[in-house]
Design a protein around this nucleic acid. Structure first.
Lengths: 194, 194, 194, 194
DNA sequence: GATGAATGAGATTTCATTCAT
DNA sequence: TATGAATGAAATCTCATTCAT
């Protein structure tokens, strides 16, 4: 008797999840290039060949991780941004961003590592740049609604500050005073609109 | 007629410089891992083997590029920071930073690409983190001297903002409104000290 | 209601036939090595594992296809050779051979592709060479009975000609003037015995 | 002091020749697919990687062997066909063909093995089919000049016969009565023109 | 010092086969 | 019996590095 469809789906999904989790962790820690398929398979506890039954290749695995992670992050953002209306939207967004960075450290590391490599970017396709543009656009709108004069420029600045903080934090999470810096950033960007 | 010692040395130095320049450019464009020794040798117009008479290996070449570039950048900083006393020290430093990013785009790209990869970081040794700590320290002192209350936190924030801007600019130098963002940053960080 | 034994057997036989048919077609088109078990299973519309319940492995499947095809061909030959007594036996055999080639193009392609590869030959075991010897022997006897002087040599020549034509035809069935060449061959080999 | 250009060229050519010779022999014996790059490198007495400094890949090596062998064979043909004018051109050509088959058994085996595999053919590009067409054309012209009525059909027949004989011989060179069959073929194709 | 041919370890990928259900 | 997820050996290929000249 063959396995039922559901059993098969569950088996497959479990393997797929193990592979993606292992790969995300290793990509984040060592970078895409320095992480071999062998390492991923060992960390996931499966045979090397299995990866190729789930993904077309190492680059496709990267793409899959990216697009799923971005979808997750987008969702988290939406939830967070909708939250407590007693604080300003900008503040909510900043807090949401850093909460997500904390939760998804590996993805963030991977993302920052990947961003600087043209070749890796090619494998990622337009996902990353679409996402970046989306964030910039959202920030700009938020600032415009808050009555900021040069919203486009201010959005670039705020985006860069958030990105820089997230990156410094993801490099040394144990040392970095994320909470304090978060408050300082909020103070700079909500109190006085120059 | 055999070359004089001095001629030999000059030729040698020239080869070394060509290799380092080619490597810096390629590392910046493709990343350390995706740049092969063959690519570097071809771009530099020398034989592959020659690299190994100047450097112990690819990682040593990277280290050499880094330490020389950092020394250069440090010097540029010092010069810039010492400049026009009619503007605040913080403003001078910010302007100096972005001027250097503009000038040394390849190095910056390499630096940002390398930062997220453990293996590359390991190859770099303590150079990068020493330098980072140095910048953070300098910023902190500057802010403290300007009378900022929580100088440590504000230094982290300012550092992250500069770093984020530099990175976004180095990703899309043609599109990025670096001048406008620079002014906005200076406005945020020199006018009101919350 | 469970299937009867007979139904089970019929289903099983059907699977086996589907696998053999798919494999024959693919082996003929792509060659034994370039045809993967997965391709065969997909073309046959069954699971990969099923092949291993019918055959011991890919090589055993090849052997099975060969021995069954050879048996079929042998039978067709016998029928054809027995036919219309108004034409010479040699002519009947030549016509029969090309009729069979037309009908079983895939098998012929597979056969010609396999013949030149030691590994494939080894997998086939003695089947192919036994068969070849049989044909050569039959031709020789036929020619001897027709009163040809050096029947052994003439048999080799006729066999080679038939084989060459069959092969050229199987390479380009749409272009090849098989009918004309058949008549020319018959003319050369039945009119004048040098 | 680096090696002179000539030394380098000689070294490279020697390696290249060793690799091509080993590959030709192995491809002929085991077929293209069953011959691994490792086997070739071992037989040639070089490291695996060296093949990739001479050829773009295994398929490019095959292409290189083919095009060089075909060029050689073409030349041999031309020389042979120009020979002794006391025998007919058709006879000269037939004798030349079999002389070349004897000399270049490995190439012939490879050629026959490759011909039946679409996938391998694709790697070979148009070389093989161009060559085949060339031979067919040459035969046809020869026969036409000899006053044969349906030269096109007769050329197909003669070509197939030569090809079949060559193939049977290359399968069992020790057993095959090539000389006797050659004479029989010449007798059939030069004495009586039906 | 300089060259580039050569090496060989290790990367990615394929695929015949096994096995739990 | 039939399924297809999973395995792992072996294939092709890349590339940092060595070495003879």
């Amino acid at each position: 008797m063959p396995r039922t469809n559901q059993q098969n789906l569950a088996l497959r999904e479990e393997s797929r999840a193990k592979i993606m989790a292992a790969a995300l962790q290793l990509f984040g820690a060592y970078g895409y290039e320095r992480t071999s398929v062998r390492m991923i398979a060992e960390a996931a506890g499966v045979a090397q060949g299995l990866m190729y039954s789930h993904f077309q290749g190492k680059d496709d695995l990267l793409r899959a991780i990216f697009s799923r992670s971005i979808a997750d992050v987008r969702e988290s953002f939406a939830r967070a941004a909708a939250g407590d209306p007693s604080v300003s939207a900008v503040e909510r967004l900043i807090r949401a961003a850093f909460a997500i960075v904390r939760e998804r450290l590996d993805f963030w590391r991977l993302s920052y590592g990947a961003r600087m490599q043209q070749a890796v970017l090619a494998a990622l396709g337009p996902d990353l740049s679409t996402w970046t543009a989306e964030i910039r656009g959202a920030l700009e709108q938020l600032l415009r609604e808050s009555g900021v004069a040069d919203a486009a420029t201010e959005a670039e600045l705020l985006f860069a500050a958030i990105d820089g903080i997230a990156q410094h934090y993801s490099l040394e999470p144990d040392r970095y005073p994320l909470d304090a810096v978060t408050e300082a950033l909020i103070a700079r960007f909500t109190r006085s609109n120059p």
